[in-house]
Design a protein around this nucleic acid. Structure first.
Length: 209
DNA sequence: TCATTAACACGGG
DNA sequence: CCCGTGTTAATGA
């Protein structure tokens, strides 16, 4: 995501034209559900502004945050579902106000053959998402909750570009699939260690991004 | 041993 | 008053 500053840098002019022609710009408000479990995906989203949270649910109905998607990124999950006409296995929620370009599924394959820029974009997307998933698996499977919490805070810091994170303990607990009691306790611990400062609905990070 | 659930008090908006 | 926060006690994996 760091490489692609503008769409013009990654896509051919002809492709950009087609994207304008066939793509549909959609807006989602903060907290709005963009995609849900079991729903068919007909469009592939390409995020223009904002950030999207992608969740996965287990058999017991517990949800956990898989990864974030932000500017110029897309959802590989959506892509693979589109081409195979499968149902969604993830849920996507707008982290803040989101503007995205919805690309009809029948164009995905066509562009793959026609435009190297599109192929590279898709391939890179799969690659990035795969690496991000590996990181998620690592933290979920092997790290204790306190380390996961720190990783979570760093991710928030990275995405927002600010060391002041506006989020409640309860929300963090939901996203890390744990209880608020634990989050409050761990945050308090981090504050006592001098790593963070706690306010209402706000956490100030004392470490570097 | 550590997470979860429920319950409670406190305080700010 | 409602919500977010901090804590505790009981229970479970």
């Amino acid at each position: 995501m760091e490489a692609a500053k503008r769409l013009q840098d990654i896509f051919e002019p002809a492709l950009l034209e087609e994207m304008q022609l066939y793509g549909e710009v959609k807006y989602f408000k903060e907290g709005e559900i963009i995609m849900d479990y079991g729903k068919y995906i007909r469009m592939m989203p390409l995020i223009i502004t904002g950030t999207i949270k992608v969740y996965r649910m287990d058999e017991t109905g517990k949800e956990i945050l898989l990864y974030y998607l932000s500017s110029y990124e897309s959802c590989s999950m959506a892509y693979s579902c589109c081409v195979e006409a499968r149902k969604s296995e993830v849920k996507a929620i707008a982290e803040d106000d989101v503007e995205l370009l919805a690309i009809p599924h029948h164009k995905l394959d066509e562009w793959l053959c026609k435009y190297p820029g599109w192929k590279n974009y898709i391939m890179r997307g799969f690659n990035e998402r795969f690496l991000e998933l590996l990181r998620s698996i690592e933290t979920i499977a092997f790290k204790k909750l306190d380390e996961r919490l720190i990783a979570y805070l760093r991710e928030k810091q990275r995405l927002s570009g600010s060391s002041v994170i506006k989020v409640s303990h309860g929300t963090i607990a939901d996203e890390l699939a744990t209880s608020r009691v634990v989050i409050s306790r761990l945050l308090k611990q981090l504050e006592n260690d001098g790593q963070i400062l706690l306010y209402r609905n706000e956490i100030k990070l004392m470490f570097k991004g």
